[in-house]
């Protein structure tokens, strides 16, 4: 096995068996559900994937920043600003591709701002992230005008042949563009981090920046670039919200997703695939949350009480889940050793 010694070793035989077993059980569960209620199962899975898209993109943003040693709690704000700018470009030009580029650009710029604060100005990184979150609320609030109408949103694209596979087809191969892109990015960022020179150096500056510096790696420059890439990923998540999911902009439309993404990143031990697992969990919880209202009359008797819950309680679900995930996993996963620390030579 030559997949970079470190992860190969980190995943001990036991956890591999466990993961494999869990995935197998999950697959069987899905197949059983599909056999009994094909339409509902497909709908739930499709929604799970789409609901998880902004979360996994946000988590990938977090991974890029934190693997290089920079804490980023400003993902929420980056998403919001990007969602807004993407929306504005869409309003002005009606060109969705330009709108996505606008969102990416906005995310990148805010990422650069975070890097400036965290790396060059040596602002405490948690506070730097808070500045971004507050700034995002203020800016989008100030520049948002009621009555702007969008010119359409991104729609699902079916991939010929693949989309006609039962179950997998509609779930994986009939998605809108940003959702596809997020799935590809999980693989790309995994390879980038663990199989390339860039990734090795990124992980080194997140673990031991002085060691990287002594072999001639420009620590702060690499951190800048990683944080900017992270910002662009968060920007894509924002673009998903305003251009693909809702098709419009609403005040504070991120609704805490940026923070959920951070919890998911920790849950996934700062790895793309691990985070994806966490994001799917949240996607599923969100899907259930919206489904419960429709299913009120069709719930089995032993679950009837769920249908009786006030909507506010169901609304709490993702947030409580985030807290539980964080409390359950934060101690078990080891963050990059130099996370949150300014690198100075003296």
């Amino acid at each position: 096995m030559q997949i970079t010694g470190s992860i190969a070793r980190a995943a001990t035989q036991r956890t591999r068996w466990l993961t494999g077993g869990l995935l197998g059980a999950l697959a069987i569960l899905i197949l059983v559900a599909y056999a009994r209620a094909p339409q509902a199962t497909t709908a739930v899975l499709t929604s799970t994937i789409r609901q998880s898209t902004p979360i996994i993109l946000g988590a990938l943003a977090g991974i890029m920043c934190e693997r290089s040693g920079v804490v980023n709690i400003g993902i929420e704000g980056m998403m919001l600003i990007a969602a807004f700018l993407g929306f504005l470009v869409n309003v002005w030009t009606g060109n969705l591709l330009l709108a996505i580029l606008g969102a990416l650009l906005a995310g990148g710029i805010v990422g650069a701002f975070h890097a400036l604060m965290a790396i060059s100005l040596k602002v405490d990184q948690i506070i730097a992230g808070t500045v971004i979150n507050i700034l995002a609320l203020g800016f989008t609030g100030y520049f948002y005008q009621q009555g702007l109408t969008t010119q359409g949103k991104l729609v699902p694209v079916e991939i010929p042949l693949l989309s006609s596979i039962p179950l997998l087809g509609p779930v994986l191969f009939a998605n809108p563009p940003i959702t596809y892109l997020s799935l590809v990015l999980i693989i790309v960022i995994h390879l980038l981090l663990f199989r390339t020179r860039w990734g090795l150096r990124t992980r080194a500056i997140g673990e031991h920046p002085a060691a990287a510096d002594t072999v001639g790696i420009a620590v702060n420059r690499m951190r800048y670039i990683n944080v900017i890439i992270g910002g662009m990923l968060a920007g894509l998540a924002g673009g998903f919200l305003s251009l693909e999911s809702v098709g419009s902009f609403e005040r504070n439309m991120t609704n805490g997703r940026g923070f959920v993404a951070l919890a998911v990143m920790i849950f996934g031990k700062w790895t793309p695939f691990g985070a994806w697992g966490g994001a799917l969990l949240f996607g599923f919880a969100n899907t259930m949350q919206s489904q419960i209202q429709f299913m009120q009359n069709r719930l089995p008797p032993w679950l009837a009480w769920v249908g009786q819950l006030p909507p506010q309680f169901i609304g709490m679900l993702p947030y409580l889940l985030t807290i539980a995930v964080l409390a359950g996993f934060v101690g078990r996963a080891r963050p990059p050793a130099a996370l949150g620390k300014v690198y100075e030579k003296e």
Binding site: I73, Y319, G328
Partner: peptide
């Protein structure tokens, strides 16, 4: 548990 208060307090705000 070591869960960072920045995330938990934000989530508790929503709750």
């Amino acid at each position: 548990t070591g869960a960072h208060e920045v995330i938990t307090t934000i989530m508790l705000n929503f709750v």
